[in-house]
Design a protein around this nucleic acid. Structure first.
Length: 229
DNA sequence: TCGCAGATTACCT
DNA sequence: GGTAATCTGCGAG
């Protein structure tokens, strides 16, 4: 791949010993490697600790589910949601704070065929959609429940690929001046906190979708209509 | 482009 | 026992 090389030094643990909203923009443009697949991060979201961020899983304190978020920095917090999807976070701040960065979207820069094969859908998926969205990203990287708590720093999973190298690979300028921030996606509280960060103009950034309340069972809640069955 | 169904988990009452 | 959840794929218009 020309000048772009995917082998660079992994990020040091100290990289993650900062507030998540400082780590998040720094992760953009860096490449996450897991097995044969590498993903360049283009969109992330920061989540705070207990009592400070109502949108974070840690807001109500430590539970068996979110225990990893309270663990040492640089570890992977992988959780299962909506009955079928996994989402991956990187833990920030020293042990005990409960802060993390959600990996929302990225661009597959290596192992395209492998990533495509992992998709359950038989439909043709455009390259840019392979890791466009938090659950798709974890699928492309083949991350699941068994990776919850994995030390991403020790495993070299969080490779410190600088913006410039990724830019060479894809011919895109991805400098700090292109990093944008705004309200987070898909959450029902603290929407105004601008802790979502993305690379401006990158086609793999997921479109903003405001949180839509899940529709109640219409037949059960509708008192004005009589079910015809 | 928009709206909904799907299926599992964990937390709260 | 009830309900919301850091979402995605698909069908209709």
């Amino acid at each position: 791949m020309g000048g772009g090389q995917l082998s660079s030094a992994p990020l040091p643990r100290s990289f993650f010993e900062r507030p998540s909203h400082e780590v998040a923009p720094d992760l953009l443009g860096r490449v996450l490697v897991h097995g044969p697949v590498a993903v360049r991060l283009t969109e992330v979201e920061a989540y705070g600790g207990p009592g400070e961020d109502p949108a974070a899983h840690t807001y109500r304190g430590k539970t068996p589910r979110n225990a990893v978020m309270f663990g040492p920095p640089g570890h992977l917090y992988v959780y299962f949601t909506y009955g079928m999807h996994f989402c991956a976070n990187l833990v920030c701040l020293p042990e005990g704070f409960g802060s993390a960065v959600l990996l929302r979207a990225g661009e597959v820069v290596a192992g395209l065929e492998e990533a495509r094969a992992r998709r359950s859908s038989a439909r043709r998926v455009p390259d840019r959609d392979l890791a466009r969205g938090p659950a798709r990203l974890t699928m492309a990287l083949s991350l699941a429940r068994e990776h919850n708590g994995l030390d991403a720093v020790r495993e070299g999973l969080a490779a410190g690929q600088p913006h410039q190298a990724a830019a060479v690979l894809e011919g895109l300028p991805a400098g700090p001046e292109l990093i944008r921030s705004g309200p987070r996606t898909g959450i029902s509280t603290a929407k105004e906190t601008p802790w979502r960060f993305w690379i401006d103009g990158d086609p793999t950034v997921s479109p903003y979708r405001a949180h839509v309340p899940r529709r109640r069972n219409a037949a059960a809640t509708s008192v004005g209509e009589v079910p015809s069955s």
